[in-house]
Computed example of a mutant assay.
Amino acid sequence: MPAEGEMYEQTRTTVSAQRRPAARAHNSSTPGAPGTTARTALPHGAPLSGHLAALVTATEAIRDATPDPARRAELDAAAHELADRLTQLAPTGAPLPHTAGAHGGRSLAAAHEHAHALAGRLLVVAAAQQDTVTAMLACRRMDAHAAARSAR
Rank of each mutant, 00 (worst) to 15 (best):
Asp143Thr: 08
Ala144Pro: 02
Gln129Glu: 06
Ala100Gln: 10
Ala33Tyr: 11
Glu9Gln: 11
Thr36Glu: 13
Thr134Met: 06
Thr99Asn: 02
Asp76Ala: 12
Gln129Arg: 06
Asp143Met: 06
Ser28Ala: 13
Ala70Leu: 06
Arg24Asp: 11
Pro34Gly: 01
Thr57Ile: 06
Ala146Phe: 09
Pro34His: 02
Glu6Ala: 13
Thr134Tyr: 05
Val124Tyr: 08
Ala33Gly: 07
Arg63Lys: 09
Pro2Met: 07
Ala126Thr: 10
Thr66Gly: 15
Pro31Met: 09
Val125Arg: 13
Ala100His: 11
Ala23Thr: 08
Pro91Leu: 02
Leu82Ile: 04
Tyr8Thr: 13
Pro97Met: 01
Arg20Val: 15
Ala53Met: 11
His26Met: 14
Ala23Gly: 08
Ser28Lys: 14
Pro67Asn: 05
Gly120Ala: 08
Gly32Gln: 10
Leu42Asp: 04
Arg149Leu: 15
Thr92Gly: 14
Ala22Val: 11
Ala83Tyr: 01
Leu55Asp: 03
Ala144Ser: 10
Asp143Gly: 02
Thr92Ala: 14
Thr30His: 11
Leu82Ala: 04
Ala119Pro: 04
Leu75Arg: 03
Ala22Gln: 08
Ala58Trp: 05
Ala90Glu: 11
Pro91Trp: 02
Arg106Asp: 15
Met1Asp: 05
Ala144Met: 13
Glu6Arg: 07
Pro34Lys: 04
Leu122Gly: 09
Val133Gly: 11
Thr36Trp: 12
Gln130Ser: 15
Val15Asp: 08
His112Asn: 14
Gly45Asp: 15
His51Asn: 05
Ala83Pro: 02
Ser107Val: 14
Ala73Met: 09
Ala146Trp: 07
Ala127Pro: 00
Pro21Tyr: 01
Arg12Ile: 09
Arg140Asn: 04
Ala94Gly: 01
Arg140Phe: 00
Arg71Asn: 10
Ser150Asn: 12
Ala144Phe: 08
Arg140Tyr: 00
Met142Cys: 07
Leu75Pro: 02
Gly35Met: 13
Val125Ala: 15
Gly105Ser: 10
Asp84Lys: 12
Val15Arg: 13
Thr132Ser: 11
Ala22Asp: 08
Ala135Phe: 06
Ser49Cys: 15
Arg85Lys: 07
Ala54Val: 00
Glu81Asp: 13
Ala146Gln: 12
Ser107His: 13
Pro2Asp: 04
Glu74Val: 08
